[in-house]
Simulated assay, not measured.
Amino acid sequence: MSDITSLYFSTPPVARFVLFPVLTVATAVFFASVGVYTEMLAIHGFFFHYSMLLKFPPAIHRLVTSFLITSPDLGVLFDTYFVYNYLSQLEKSNSKFSKKEDLIWYLMFVGGVIVLVNQLFTGAILYLHGLLIAICYTATQDQRGMQAHFYVVTIPAQLMPWCMLLAQLLFSGWGSFLLGLTGIFAAHLHDFLTRIYPEFGHGINLIPTPGFLSWILATPRLRNMGYGTGYAPRSDSGSRGGPLPDSWRSKGPGRRLG
């Protein structure tokens, strides 16, 4: 476990997200929310509005930070747990996400739809609850016939996102409820374009995983394996590493002149 932890924190941020998408998202959600609610960070730096893309430089990073803030108080723990739990289910057991790049593309697509729909219709500026409902909806689609626990109540697994949506309505009001609905819409749209239409409409996957994500994972330092992802050394030359080019080192031992 210590080796995994050391590897996680020693990996550059972009590669860390590629290698450990679930752990990275959950960690970012927890620490960003704790920072905001302890007033160490200003919440103004996290929300998103389309006008921020029209400034120079455009605040593109807010398309990510707007998904990092949970509900206050116990919501920090519960929302972080739900994010980690359902993303783990998608990564480990959902057949649509057999590769890490598929899960990363799913988060990018669903997140983009949530932002777009809310900017057009609801005016919401923070989107974690929409994403949480979306990943719950996707994770439970393959669990029909199974049971799940919603706090102290046992329900059919496929009803979990609807129960979470109802809880948002009761505890956070209509704004949070509408945000959750956009999450269900985004998750269902992804399911329709990648599974329902190809299977039942005899078509093709309309939003395949972009090649650049697969290219990132295909680099020598990031290797997909059957039991996980390996982190390869930066050089395969082993003890032959050094400042000299390979062509110089391959010419045999040196000779002293004079």
Rank of each mutant, 00 (worst) to 15 (best):
D191V: 06
P245M: 05
V152F: 10
I207C: 03
G226M: 05
H202S: 11
L189E: 07
L159M: 15
I204P: 02
I207Y: 00
F177I: 09
G238T: 02
A187P: 00
F150L: 14
P220R: 02
L213A: 00
C163L: 12
A186T: 00
S237H: 08
Y197E: 06
L166Q: 08
T182E: 01
G230K: 10
R223P: 02
G238C: 01
L169S: 03
M164T: 12
L217T: 07
G175A: 11
I196C: 10
P210A: 00
L217D: 11
F212L: 06
P161Y: 01
A186P: 00
L178K: 04
Y231W: 15
A187G: 01
S237K: 06
P210F: 00
M225E: 15
P245F: 00
S239V: 10
P156D: 08
I207L: 11
L179S: 01
G201Q: 06
M225T: 14
L181H: 03
F192L: 07
E199S: 10
W174K: 06
F200L: 09
Y231K: 15
Y227S: 13
L213C: 00
G175T: 11
L222I: 13
W162T: 15
H188M: 13
F192V: 04
R221T: 15
Q158P: 15
W174T: 07
T154P: 02
T219D: 07
G203T: 00
I207M: 04
A167N: 07
S237I: 12
R234C: 08
T219C: 08
A218M: 08
R221C: 13
F192A: 14
N205E: 03
I184L: 12
F212Y: 07
N224Y: 02
L159T: 15
F200C: 08
H202P: 03
W162Q: 14
Y151I: 15
M160S: 13
F150P: 05
L179V: 02
P243D: 14
L178Y: 07
I155G: 02
A232T: 08
L189A: 13
H188R: 14
N224L: 05
G203R: 00
L222W: 02
G175W: 02
A187Q: 03
H190L: 05
V153L: 09
Y227V: 11
Y151K: 14
H190I: 08
G228D: 05
H202A: 12
R221S: 12
